[in-house]
Nucleic acid binder design. Sequence first.
DNA 1: CGTTCGATGCACT
DNA 2: GTGCATCGAACGT
Length: 230
Amino acid sequence: MTLRLRSGSPRAPLPRSFYDRPTLDVARDVIGKVLVHVARGHATSGIIVEAEAYIGESDPACHAAPGLTRRNRPLYGEPGHAYVYLNYGMHCLVNVVTEARGLPAAVLIRALAPLDGISLMRTRRRKTKLGPTGRRRAGEIQDHELCRGPGNLTRAMGITLAHNEMDLTGSRLYLEDRGNEVGELGEIAWGPRIGITVGTMHPWRCFVAGHRAVSGRPISSHAVRVEPSP
DNA sequence: CGTTCGATGCACT
DNA sequence: GTGCATCGAACGT
C-alpha cells in the first residue's frame, strides 16, 4: 500500500522549529498531529492521542537524569530527531527530541489512532512473540488497540532501534499536520506520567480524554488537570 | 471487573 | 548483577 494523504495536500514533515520549543508545548502540540513511517514503500500512520514530556537532568524520570551516557546521547543532540530505545528487553519506545541548546528533553509518543496501513499494522502485531504459555489472543486485534501503548505502537508501525537518532524532517519517519482539529477527537487533559516510580509529581502526560486508543484505565474527568504545572 | 507476574535485552554502576 | 518510560495471560473477586 502506498502513502495516501488527505485530498491533495503535499507530504510536509513538521519543521525543526516545531521541536525546538519548550517540551511541554511540544507535548501538547503533538496531540492531533500524524506520525508517519514509510518502510519499503509502505506507509503506516496514526493521529497522536497520548504523549509524555521528559525534561532535563533534574527530572528523575528522564533518561538524562544520570547525565550524558552512550544511551541517552540523542537527548543532548539536535531537536527534531528520534530517540528510540529498548525497554524491558522487548519493547522499542519512540521519543521526539525537543529543546535545543543543552537541555536534554524529549516527548514520548504513547498512543495513536491508526489512519493508514491498518492491515500492515495488524500483520506486524500478530508477529509479536508469544508469552511463556504460548497462547495467542482469541480474537482479532481491534483498530483502536493496534497503537494503544508505546510498545504496541512501535510494533505496529515497524519502528525499531535502527530508527534511533533518525532526522524527523526527512521522508522515512516524521510528524505532519493533516489539519485535524483536536476538538474533533475529544478534550485535552494532563495527568501524571505512567509506568514510572519517580517523577510522578509532574503532570506531564498529555492525552485526549476518553479516547479509546489512549493507554491505561479511563480517567474520570475531575481527576485530571487541564494545564500542566511545571 | 481487578491485580499479579513472567518474558526479555541491554545500558549502566 | 540490577533495574527498567511494557504487555497481556492467568488468575482472584
